[in-house]
Design a protein around this nucleic acid. Structure first.
Lengths: 213, 213
DNA sequence: ACCTGAACACCGTTCAAGT
DNA sequence: ACCTGAACACCGTTCAAGT
C-alpha cells in the first residue's frame, strides 16, 4: 500500500513527485485551515505530501518562506476577486468602488486562513528578505485596486478632490476592520445577506463623508 | 552566584519565587516583544524567570492559557486607556467619542505585541474553554466603551437614532482597521502628530455620515 | 536534480520525586 | 504548596548519502 498509489500518472513511475512544491502548499493550507497557523509544521505537510521531512527544503528555504509563498498566492487571489467584482459593474465608478469593498470583505470571510496569513503576525516568521519583499509587493497591488477606484471617482467628480491617499486610507481601514473583526468573530454576520447589509451600511456612512459638495 | 540574587527580599530566602506567575507573564511579553509571538516558548520564559521548564505548569495549564492571561490583561489596559481619554474630555459627548477612538489606535501602536495578542490568531492557541471565555468578556468590555459613547451622542441628538450597534460597528471597524494596518506597517504614521491627523481625518469623514440632520 | 535517513538542538507536556 | 529532573513525542534545519 506504499507503492500502489495512483494519484499522479506523471513521470518515471517516479520515486519523486513531479509537483511537490504545489502539493506542499496545498497541504500546508489544509493544516492551517484545520488547526490554525500555529499548528502548522513542515514535517506534517511533508507527511501529507508523502515525502520525507527533509524534502520540503529542496523547494522552500524554510517554513517562513513557504508561508510567504502562500501569502503571495493569497494576495493574487484577492486582487483577482477585486478585479472581477469591479469588472461586473461596467463604468459606474461608484458601483465599482462599492463592489470592490464588498469583494474584499467577502474574500476575507470566505478564506479566513488566507486572510490571516496575509495580514496576521505570521509574517514575522518570514526571515527571508526576498520573500518579505514579494509579499509586500503583492499587498501593494491589492491596495492599488482601491486607490484606483477612489481616483476614478474623484475624476468623475463624485468624491472630493482631496489627496487620494487621504481618502483611500480610511476607506481601506473601514473595509479591513470589518474583515478583521468578522474573521475574528468579534462581529457576527449570520449569512451573506447580513454581510452585504453590514458592508453596504458602512459604505453609505463613509460615502456621506467622502462625496463632493 | 545561584543563591545570592537579592532582587526579592521576600519569603524564606526561598527556594521558590514568591511571584512566579507575574514574572512568567512579564518574561513572555518580553520574548514576544523581542522576537514575535511565534518565537515564544514556555521553556524560554521559565529560563528567564530562573526556574525549571516544568515550573510554569503550576501556574498555567499550558502555553495557551498564559497567552490568554496576557490578552485579558491587555484588554484591561485598553479599557483603562479609553476611560482615561474620555474622562479628560468632560461632558462633551462628541469629544469623548473622538478621544476614545484616538486612544484605541494609540494603544495599538504603542503596544503592538499586546494588540496582536488581543486580536491576532494567537487566540487559536487557547484550547482552554474558561480562558477563552475570559478573553471574550474582556474584549466585550472594550467594545462597550465605544457603544456607550455612541449611545451618549444619540441621546444628545448629535448622532442619528439608528440602532446603536449599526453605527458602533462601522465606527469600531474604522478605528480597528487603522490600528491593524498601522501595527502591520501597511500604513505609516511618522510620529504622533501624523497619527492624530490620520485618525482625526478618518473620524471627520465618518462623522459626516453618522450625524443627525 | 530531487529525495532519504540520521543527527542536533530545540519544543510542550506529564509525572514521580524532592523541599 | 511549589518546584525539579527525567522522560516522551514531537519540531526546524542541516548534511552526507543515495537514485
Amino acid at each position: 500500500m506504499t507503492t500502489t498509489d495512483s494519484s499522479k500518472p506523471r513521470g518515471k513511475q517516479g520515486y519523486h513527485h513531479g509537483n511537490l512544491r504545489e502539493d506542499l502548499m496545498r497541504a500546508a493550507l489544509e493544516i492551517i485551515h484545520e488547526s490554525g497557523a500555529a499548528a502548522l509544521s513542515l514535517r506534517d505537510a511533508a507527511r501529507r505530501a508523502g515525502v520525507s521531512h527533509a524534502a520540503p527544503y529542496r523547494h522552500f528555504k524554510g517554513k517562513g518562506v513557504l508561508l510567504a509563498a502562500l501569502a503571495v498566492e493569497s494576495f493574487h487571489g484577492l486582487v483577482d476577486a477585486l478585479e472581477r467584482a469591479k469588472a461586473a459593474c461596467g463604468d459606474d465608478v461608484v458601483a465599482r468602488l462599492r463592489a470592490g469593498g464588498l469583494a474584499y470583505v467577502r474574500y476575507a470571510v470566505r478564506h479566513p486562513s488566507r486572510f490571516r496569513l496575509m495580514f496576521g503576525p505570521d509574517r514575522e516568521l518570514i526571515d527571508d528578505k526576498a520573500a518579505a519583499a514579494e509579499v509586500a509587493a503583492a499587498g501593494q497591488a491589492a491596495y492599488r485596486q482601491l486607490y484606483d477606484s477612489i481616483a476614478d471617482c474623484q475624476r468623475a467628480g463624485v468624491i472630493r478632490p482631496d489627496p487620494t491617499d487621504s481618502i483611500a486610507q480610511p476607506a481601506w481601514a473601514l473595509m479591513h476592520g470589518l474583515a478583521a473583526l468578522l474573521v475574528d468573530r468579534r462581529i457576527e454576520a449570520a449569512d451573506d445577506a447580513a454581510l452585504e447589509a453590514l458592508v453596504g451600511h458602512s459604505q453609505r456612512i463613509l460615502y456621506e463623508g467622502m462625496r463632493s459638495g
